[in-house]
Computed example of a mutant assay.
Amino acid sequence: MSRINQLFALCLCALAALTQVGCGSYDATVSGSVSLDGEPLKSGTISFFPVADGPTAYARIEPTGQYELRTGREAGLAPGEYQVTVVAREQRELAANDAGGPPPPGKQLTPNHYRDRKTSGLAYTIEPGHNQIDLDLTTAQPGG
């Protein structure tokens, strides 16, 4: 077998292996809206922590209150059970503080119980395909 044929065969094997393994795409997507006491949140972050092993999925809350989860740089996440946190703060108009450093964080909008997956009261089962999950948060802590 000539050197070119060997190289060609090696490339075909590598391509076949990549096709079998996949490129890290996820079988599920999640999007929705986020509100606090009936008003859309205009900023913040949402984190979906898998109950089993696996990477955490994140989303930035858009000014419209909408979000779409990503895992790393890829859209989507693996199907399974997740615990969720939501953290939102008022946006500051300052670009820097007086000493030139980052501005101080804005006032926290979401109650503390939404910052921890064990106290947020937010848990979801993600199925393959698209999942629409609207997060209707309240300032009152779940369960009283």
Rank of each mutant, 00 (worst) to 15 (best):
G54K: 08
G100I: 01
G129E: 05
N5P: 07
E74H: 11
P55F: 10
I126H: 00
E127V: 12
L15S: 15
H113N: 10
R115E: 07
Q83R: 09
L122A: 04
R73Y: 10
R117E: 04
G72L: 08
V34N: 00
S33M: 02
S25L: 08
P104W: 07
D134T: 08
Q91A: 04
P40R: 07
L77F: 02
I4A: 14
L122W: 04
T45N: 10
L109P: 05
T19R: 05
H113Y: 14
G100A: 01
T64F: 00
T56P: 04
S35Y: 03
V30K: 02
T125N: 12
L69E: 06
P111D: 12
Q108P: 04
M1D: 12
P128W: 09
Y114R: 05
T85S: 09
P63K: 05
Y114P: 04
L7G: 10
P104L: 14
A123T: 14
V51T: 11
P103F: 04
E74L: 13
A9V: 13
Q20V: 13
A14L: 15
G100M: 00
S47I: 01
P50C: 02
G101V: 05
R73L: 13
D116T: 06
L135Y: 03
S35D: 08
L135I: 09
V87E: 01
L18A: 13
L69W: 07
T29P: 03
L10G: 14
Y124L: 05
I61W: 01
R92Q: 11
Y26R: 10
P128G: 12
G32M: 01
G32H: 01
S2V: 08
T56V: 13
G65N: 00
E39M: 06
R60V: 05
A140W: 07
T64Q: 00
